[in-house]
Amino acid sequence: MKSVAFQEDLCVISAYLKEKQFSGSTIMVTGATGLIGSIIIKGIVEYNKENDEKIFCIGLARNPEKVNSVFQEELDANGLVPNVSFLYQDIEKSIPETVKCDFVIHTANSTTSKFFMTNPVEVIDSIYTGSKNVFEFARKSNAKGIVYLSSMEVFGQVFEEKRVGENDLGYIDLQNVRSCYSEGKRLVECLAASYAHEYGLPVKVARLAQTFGAGVPSTENRVFAQFAKSAIKGEDIVLHTNGLSCGNYCYTTDVIRAIFLLLKAGKNGDAYTIVNEETSRSIYDMASMVAENFSDGKSKVVFDIPEGNEFGYAPQTKLKLSSAKMNSLGWNAKYNLKEMFERMMPDLKE
């Protein structure tokens, strides 16, 4: 059962698709069962309910059972999602040239910090090989637009407290295996710029702040969900670091509006940071805000810091992202951090 906030979000996506004139297009979404990929597809389904001229979608995924679970409410009587077809394969395999589409949104990626620590070689290989396969497919399909979802982790460690733009990259320790993710993302951003330069591929890089909101599944285990679940249960919020690292966030539909805008706007090969600047704050401050506002006074913030980085957290940074470049395209974030948690909480309680 969709929460009220999540249904509102799907209607927002639907209206934006109509405003930006995606009617009649075919859009491929890799990582179809992930948070952002699945919400994009559900937004397209909502659009098709409300409009006669349809948008067709190809969702790339690995697991049919997970597809049926994630899209259970979208399935029709025949067990299909109307106007959506799913292509089941690993992203590290070439996409068949018989598949054709107008736009590509490449969201497929691991987001599990522990996996970065235990399987760094596989992380790098998946990020690069998967993205190259997607870029090659988009090039051969003569796609009108492609967006690659990168991460704020490409900025690395920033030690000055100032707003940083897309070119203000910080330090990444290449001897730290946790850097496999951030350095892999940097590599693919360079690959995107190279494809734009050499082949004229209309690819834009969406460099995302941490993204969440309504529709987050109860299985989500990233730090924002851990904080929210602790508050719901009235338990203490436990920090495994000193909490001084600065986080940056953006609401799911704010990010998705930016992605669809980038499909048709911006400079090919360029990176655009997607963030709500009002959300920039330390991990400790975010934990305190959640405890204060969402636990009925039952939760407090406590520390349990292990000697090693067994949880795979990114190195400490003072990073405060700037949204100026994205704003210049006419985009603005709508929801602040407290509102993001307010809209996510009903789904986690469910």
Rank of each mutant, 00 (worst) to 15 (best):
M1S: 14
F6Y: 15
L10G: 07
Q21W: 10
T26D: 00
A32S: 13
G34Y: 02
L35V: 03
L35R: 00
S38H: 05
S38A: 08
I39V: 10
I39M: 02
I40C: 07
I40S: 00
N51C: 07
F56L: 10
A61Y: 03
N63L: 04
P64N: 04
E65S: 13
S69L: 12
V70A: 06
Q72E: 08
E74V: 12
E74R: 08
L75D: 01
V81C: 09
V84S: 05
F86G: 09
L87C: 11
Q89Y: 04
D90H: 08
D90V: 02
I91K: 04
E92N: 01
K93E: 14
P96C: 10
V104K: 01
A108S: 11
T112R: 12
F115R: 11
M117K: 14
N119K: 14
V121F: 14
V121A: 14
E122Y: 04
I124Y: 08
D125E: 10
G130T: 08
K132M: 11
K132D: 13
F137H: 12
R139L: 15
S141P: 02
A143N: 01
K144Q: 12
V147R: 03
L149D: 01
S151N: 12
S151G: 06
V154E: 06
G156A: 03
E160H: 12
E160I: 12
K162N: 10
R163G: 15
V164W: 04
D168P: 05
L169A: 08
Y171C: 05
I172W: 03
L174C: 11
N176H: 13
S179G: 13
G184E: 03
L191W: 01
A192Q: 03
S194A: 14
S194Y: 04
A196K: 05
E198A: 11
Y199I: 01
G200H: 03
V203K: 13
A209S: 15
S218F: 13
E220V: 00
N221D: 15
N221H: 13
R222Y: 10
F227H: 06
A228Q: 08
D236F: 11
I237Y: 07
N242V: 00
C246Y: 14
V255K: 00
R257P: 04
L262V: 02
G266P: 13
N268T: 12
A271V: 03
S280V: 08
M286A: 15
S288K: 07
S288A: 05
S295K: 07
S299L: 07
S299M: 13
K300R: 13
V301Q: 10
D304G: 13
I305F: 15
I305T: 12
G308E: 14
N309M: 02
E310W: 09
T317Q: 03
S323V: 04
A324M: 09
M326V: 09
L329C: 02
G330Y: 13
G330R: 04
W331L: 10
N336I: 07
N336T: 07
M340H: 01
F341K: 05
R343S: 01
M345C: 06
D347G: 12
